[in-house]
């Protein structure tokens, strides 16, 4: 039993599915920069198409992860930790809301492994949306983003002691920025008047389009994202060591991958 207990194992087949899913995720978020001019008629259609696509992809990935077997202890822990996340999500300052979710997500992903991180990212946001009445077309994008934040936290390199906490804190704040950047990108194409000079304009060359998006990101949410990054950094540095110890103790007691013997 190593220090990093894997609560939910990712089978090779699930790994392959996740790789395909990440390709689709990149397409679903970055399509405004990738699409050839004249392929889409309206600015409303692609976000919906890709939203449905992400729902299917998430279903397939979660089903494949579950195929490998989620034992009752991992499942109960998943439920309880998503409840913790759903409960602390409204504590974040208002609508941006994700500030405090990453804190538990990153630490749990680190301790319980990438499979658990991925699933926790999905269940946390799903439960939170159900409790607060926030189900909508934005959910697949948020779930996808959070799932990858949790999974990548489980794939971080080995480190111990202070270096580990520092690494997780930096990762938490970076992922806060990246999450904001991607989520903005998901609603940028239709949220502004097309005649505004920072709106998405189909058919522009990449650099101009990217400049427009950067200006939009700067004007709307850089403040939020900075707040989120700082909160993550401070939370992980202050409470990280204690929470990591708690999680590891629980992992030892749960013995997720205990060998089954018949005598």
């Amino acid at each position: 039993m190593t220090d990093r207990a894997t609560a939910i194992r990712i089978a090779p087949r699930a790994g392959l599915v996740i790789a395909l899913a990440s390709f689709l995720g990149v397409v679903a978020f970055f399509w405004p920069f990738l699409v050839a001019p004249g392929k889409f008629g309206s600015n409303y259609a692609p976000p919906l198409i890709f939203g449905v696509l992400l729902v299917i992809v998430l279903c397939v990935v979660l089903s494949e992860i579950a195929e490998g077997g989620i034992n009752s202890k991992a499942l109960a822990m998943l439920g309880v930790l998503s409840a913790v996340n759903a409960a602390i999500r409204p504590l974040g300052a208002g609508t941006a809301g994700i500030e405090t979710v990453f804190f538990i997500l990153v630490l749990a992903g680190r301790v319980y492994g990438p499979g658990f991180g991925f699933t926790l990212g999905c269940t946390s946001l799903f439960a939170s949306a159900l409790i607060t009445g926030g189900v909508g077309p934005w959910m697949p994008y948020q779930m996808f983003g959070c799932a990858f934040v949790g999974m990548l936290a489980g794939l971080l390199p080995k480190a111990t002691g202070r270096r580990e906490v520092l690494m997780l804190a930096v990762y938490g704040s970076l992922s806060g920025y990246l999450f904001g950047f991607l989520l903005n990108l998901s609603f940028w194409p239709f949220s502004l008047d097309p005649n505004s000079s920072i709106a998405y304009l189909p058919g522009l060359p990449f650099t101009q389009q990217f400049h427009r998006y950067l200006a939009f990101d700067l004007a709307t949410s850089l403040g939020w994202d900075t707040g989120r990054a700082v909160t993550n950094f401070v939370c992980v540095t202050l409470a990280g060591p204690a929470v990591l110890t708690t999680f590891r103790r629980a992992a030892r007691r749960a013995r997720f991958q205990a060998p089954v013997e018949f005598r």
Partner: peptide, 18 residues
Amino acid sequence: PGALYELGVAVTVSISVA
């Protein structure tokens, strides 16, 4: 769908535990 049974259970648990 039944294939997402585990997800449903986890979410149900979390809604009741919150």
